[in-house]
């Protein structure tokens, strides 16, 4: 999905002064960047603003992209750092983003979520909702593995950890996802099966 064999071609065009070529990269990766940001900050408006910042930063420092890794990998590090610094600044006037908070948030959204479920009635929507209720790290690693099609080696490199640690983290993230789905959506799962 994010294969983008001609990413480097577009990047070279942008570096040669063709600013409009950057629109191609934005269109290709906007959903990926937005999803990662949303998984971290849990708010659409903030995620959209942060995603814009990510693309602007990526443009500004495009000359530093050496093409040794995939463009999506490089983008992920910008998303991660931008969102982390945003969350650090935001921390004093918000509650923490630990799992308990996520569950509380889920409780608050349950009414609207149930309405959504009735409307959508799809397992995918349910999985998506369950991912949004995970902690930022868990949701991030699942998104990287399944949606950005990064291998465990690449994920390990992005996160600066060992491959085995990446494997364990992915496993734990999937465990937690399963737990969320089992505890929160048991009834809905029954409806769908």
């Amino acid at each position: 999905m994010l294969a983008g064999n001609n990413d480097n071609e577009l990047i070279s065009k942008v570096l040669r002064g063709d600013q409009q070529a950057y629109a191609g990269l934005v269109e290709r990766y906007q959903a990926y960047v937005f999803t990662l940001a949303l998984r971290m900050v849990k708010n659409r408006e903030e995620a959209e603003e942060l995603s814009q910042d990510v693309f602007i930063k990526a443009y500004k420092y495009l000359a530093d992209f050496r093409g040794e890794s995939r463009f999506s990998t490089w983008l992920y590090t910008i998303v991660h750092n931008t969102c982390l610094s945003f969350l650090r600044k935001k921390k004093p006037d918000t509650r923490s983003l630990d799992e308990e908070h996520n569950f509380n948030l889920a409780d608050n959204r349950e009414t609207s979520f149930r309405a959504d479920l009735v409307e959508q009635k799809s397992r995918q929507a349910m999985v998506n909702q369950a991912i949004s209720q995970l902690g930022a790290d868990d949701a991030g690693i699942i998104t990287l593995f399944y949606k950005s099609e990064q291998s465990l080696e690449e994920i390990a490199r992005i996160l600066g950890i060992e491959i085995n640690t990446a494997k364990v983290r992915l496993h734990r993230a999937r465990q937690r996802l399963k737990e969320v789905m089992e505890t929160r959506f048991t009834e809905e799962v029954k409806d769908l099966t």
Binding site: Q30, T35, E48, R123, N128, M181
Partner: peptide
Amino acid sequence: LSASLKKVSLDEP
């Protein structure tokens, strides 16, 4: 679950 995870769509801005 794995199949569902692969099918999950990305959020659009």
